[in-house]
Design a protein around this nucleic acid. Structure first.
Length: 850
RNA sequence: GCCCGAGUGGCGGAAUGGCAGACGCGGCGGUCUCAAAAACCGCUGACCGCAAGGUCGUGUGAGUUCGACUCUCACCUCGGGCACCA
């Protein structure tokens, strides 16, 4: 018999401190490395240690921890590691500001963040902590760089780059967001610099194709990567420069176009202001104009120059190109809207087929002959019959159809044009036969610029020798250690630190200079997930066996802001490592969950400058970590943004306190003392109802865990608590089924455990009387058969509208069910003929009568 | 301009083509209390009705279906990605 046992008060802080200590002492969350168990690799994106963790981290890690803890209970060998993305510019800037060292600042922040992680009860295996600023880590990054170099994936070249004047370093293409530096929002300058690149473009097609296999990734992210990679199919077409007499010379230009079908509509020819050898072809009398235009382009920022609304500027070169398809002479112009680093830097001007060319033609009064007429054009019908129109007969107002039939296009007139159309193939074939062009694919993706002119990063392992050129640092000399104690506050850089850069050439032994650029921090985060598999290896970045055991990551969780940068770079690194024979897979992350942002009460992004940041500590203090964890998971589905709501937090705290009392009440003298055989078929009334609730809600909750829908998993727990509360209210103390109550109590605690670990562990011990950890308890088994009730409510519909509800035995025969349903609505269908009866067993009967 | 998402009560949000609004917040009423807080119980989409009950209702309009928040088409609004990329 359950006794009137005194229920202790719920003291979150005491409980949480206690279990945090015990879990650490017993090493409960060390990775087991038990090959008999199936593996599960649960990973949250590691933080940049810029201070303490914020709400976004708390939400991210609460999800990962729920996943890892549940997987463990389900019998998986779980790898759930954590680390720090510890190199980066904010540390250096903070060090300059406070006259300290980046390492000191970073160490302090890592310690603070670690304390918060422990306080939150995240079940990380801290023995595997990885910090990218440790030589034991970046040594292997330098090693990987050397391997890539050997493979020909590292290049050093001079090209126009984005230089951030405030960060005093170059930026990767991906790091210029909306025309400004992703970090400090200053406008980058365009500079011609020699820099280090990784040839990610070698993998462009594969990175694009691989997206189709990633069924566990959100479509949104895959779409963003597709946009970023930007594959365009078209053709390269050769145009010859004309001589004085208008005859083709030996000098040619190649243009890339996605619309070769509009070739007959070309009326001018364009070169970019940076086109190599431009001034060799400019006619002397036009040189001044062209020069002015090039200077204007050089003065304009890259972002401004690429703004869609910007007015186009051009200058005539005084020369003509020959359209290979009809011999027409096209004036060659220089235009500032032509990009130098996409395609060939030369473009054919088709004003009727391209909005930009159209604007240009209107401004400089160039002809605009239509070549594609759309279906809705009045000319279209005429065209289908005649198949030919006189050149220049059609006014320019008919321009700008993306798809339609070709006009004024010689032998191709009448063909269907548009992207990937028959006209495109026909013209490419025609050009190919004559050696004037070929099909070509272009990419928006550029090679990854990885060198940074900053101190706090992984040194690039290269040496500049006056005799031998640029040579790699020999493997045995790794790591190239980043020196401590530069006087950053006075502006000292690696390039001014002879202790660092003075060295000898590994080839000739002569005096040489060490490379003083460091690597982009995104290199650090492109392979850290592999290091976790084998974090203490000092022979290799990781062993093949360890990678084979744990990779790929089964569940990767992090913010959408990494959709392009980090997630694309990591996919690239994985493929390189595969081609180096170090791993067997191509895709590093099987399932990806991008959690939404936590915003403030008014829907604004939390930021220090706005002063609207809610610190995790402000919730953990008054309510405890369990409440904090539940709140960030309950308020919204994982992928959605949510606005921080203190009321919702209080609601979660109320629920935890309710469960606390409820479990003590249900558990009686403890699980062992109370539990006994329960024969489901003998349960009746309230007992049967409670048992049904346990199994149906347990199933729902389990399924919601599996699809990472924590908000609905929690509501299933709440419903189970409600069912148990109703049971206690409805059944007198002497009538209660103690065994059933003990079972409900144990299972409720078990399903709560992944989300609220502290209170679950405490209840498991103190209310239910267990002595082992709840994380050694298997996930409860819920039974489909017991989830079903004997009586079911059936909706009776008339033509799809619910008109009555009847309660019948679950296994009632179809005929009888329909009979009863018809009887229930007899007065409504009196005088009508029943045309059809649709029955969905256990749910509804729909009667169609007229 | 191109490409993705998303529109459901006062709010956050639930619903394998089958009883819309689970669960929570808030609100209203009650129990307990000298009182308040806490806790607990009940009600809570809109409109009509004393009530039984009825009508309407998932951004708008059409369609498919016995039946549509769910599928199809068009449109509106919001959010996101790409963008002088030829």
């Amino acid at each position: 018999m359950p006794s009137a046992k005194q229920i202790p008060a719920y003291d979150a802080e005491a409980i949480e401190t206690k279990w945090q200590r015990i879990w650490e002492e017993t090493g409960l969350f060390k990775t087991e490395e038990d090959p008999a168990k199936p593996k599960r690799y649960v990973l949250e994106m590691f933080p940049y240690p810029s201070g303490d963790l914020h709400m976004g981290h708390a939400r991210n890690y609460a999800m990962g921890d729920a996943m890892a803890r549940q997987a463990r209970m389900q019998g998986f060998d779980v790898l759930h590691p954590m680390g720090f993305d510890a190199f980066g510019l904010p540390a250096e800037n903070a060090a300059i500001k406070h006259d300290t060292q980046p390492r000191t600042w970073t160490e302090k922040n890592m310690a603070t963040s670690l304390a918060t992680m422990r306080r939150m009860g995240f079940s990380y295996d801290f023995d595997r902590l990885v910090r990218t600023c440790d030589p034991s880590y970046y040594r292997w990054e330098q090693w990987l760089f050397l391997k890539m170099w050997e493979k020909g994936l590292v290049t050093r070249r001079t090209s126009p780059v984005n230089w951030c004047p405030s960060c005093k370093t170059v930026l990767a293409n991906e790091q210029v967001v909306d025309g400004v530096c992703w970090r400090c929002e200053s406008v980058p300058e365009r500079r011609e610099l020699e820099q280090w690149y990784l040839k990610i473009t070698d993998y462009a097609q594969e990175l694009l194709d691989g997206l189709d296999e990633l069924t566990g990734w959100p479509d949104r992210v895959k779409q963003m990567q597709r946009n970023w990679i930007g594959r365009s199919e078209g053709a390269n077409i050769t145009f010859a420069l004309a001589d004085e007499a208008g005859k083709p010379t030996e000098e040619t230009f190649t243009v890339f176009t996605t619309r070769p079908d509009t070739l007959f509509g070309a009326t001018f020819f364009l070169l970019s202001p940076e086109y190599p050898g431009l001034f060799d072809i400019v006619a002397p009398e036009e040189a001044e104009d062209v020069k002015a235009l090039c200077e204007l382009a050089a003065r304009t920022s890259a972002f401004e120059r690429q703004a869609t609304e910007r007015e186009k500027h051009g200058a005539f070169t005084g020369r003509y190109a020959v359209n290979p398809v009809n011999g027409r002479l096209l004036p060659v112009w220089v235009a500032d809207y032509v990009l130098t680093d996409y395609g060939t830097g030369a473009v054919m001007g088709v004003p009727s087929g391209d909005e930009r060319d159209f604007q240009f033609a209107r401004k400089y009064d160039l002809p605009i002959p239509p070549v594609v007429v759309g279906e809705d054009d009045p000319l279209y019908a005429e065209l289908k019959d005649e198949r030919e129109l006189k050149v220049m007969d059609v006014p320019w107002e008919h321009a700008m159809a993306a798809e339609g039939r070709l006009v004024q296009s010689g032998p191709f007139t009448g063909l269907v044009g548009g992207h990937g159309s028959e006209a495109v193939s026909a013209i490419i074939a025609w050009l190919s036969e004559r050696g004037l062009g070929e099909a070509k694919v272009e990419w928006r993706l550029r090679d990854w610029l990885i060198s940074r002119q900053r101190y706090w990063g992984t040194p690039i392992p290269a040496i500049h020798c006056p005799t031998c050129g640029i040579v790699p640092v020999p493997e045995e000399d790794l790591p190239v250690v980043l020196p401590d104690a530069l006087d950053l506050a006075s502006g000292e850089t690696l390039a001014e630190c002879p202790e660092f850069y003075e060295t000898t050439c590994p080839v000739c032994g002569g005096p040489a200079r060490r490379e003083t650029d460091t690597m982009d921090t995104f290199c650090d985060s492109s392979w850290y997930y592999l290091r976790y598999c084998d974090p203490h290896n000092d022979e290799a970045p990781f062993s093949k066996e360890a990678a084979a055991r744990w990779m790929p990551v089964d569940n990767y969780i992090g913010g959408i802001e990494h959709a392009i940068l980090h997630l694309l770079y990591s996919r690239f690194f994985s493929r390189v490592l595969r081609d180096l024979g170090m791993v067997e897979f191509s895709e590093p992350f099987t399932n990806l969950l991008c959690q939404g942002m936590v915003k403030d009460e008014h829907g604004d992004v939390m930021s220090k400058s706005k002063g609207n940041v809610v610190a995790p500590a402000s919730v953990i203090g008054p309510y405890g970590a369990d409440t904090m964890r539940m709140a960030v998971l309950f308020v919204a589905p994982p992928v959605k943004d949510f606005d921080w709501d203190p009321k919702a937090v209080a609601g979660c705290n109320r629920f935890i306190k309710r469960v606390w009392r409820l479990v003590f009440e249900l558990a009686g003298e403890g699980f062992e003392a109370e539990h006994g055989e329960i024969s489901p078929e003998e349960l009746a009334g309230a007992d049967a109802e409670l048992n049904h609730a346990l199994h149906s809600l347990g199933l729902r909750c389990t399924r919601d865990f599996e699809r990472a829908q924590y908000n609905t998993a929690i509501s299933a727990m709440m419903e189970l608590a409600n069912a148990a509360t109703s049971y206690l209210a409805a059944v007198g103390e002497g009538e209660r089924n103690a065994a059933l109550m003990a079972l409900v109590a144990r299972d409720l605690v078990a399903i709560l455990a992944p989300i609220c670990p502290f209170v679950a562990e405490e209840l498991y011990h103190e209310a239910l009387g267990f002595t082992t950890s709840i994380y050694d308890e298997p996930w409860p088994v819920f039974d489909e058969a017991q989830a079903a009730t004997e009586q079911v409510e059936i909706a009776v519909q008339l033509k799809g509208k619910v008109r009555a509800r009847i309660t019948v035995p679950r296994d009632l025969a179809k005929e009888e069910l329909e009979e009863r349903a018809i009887a229930a609505v007899a007065d409504r269908i009196a005088g009508l003929t029943i045309r059809k009866v649709i029955t969905v067993p256990g749910r509804l009967v729909n009667i169609v009568a007229s």
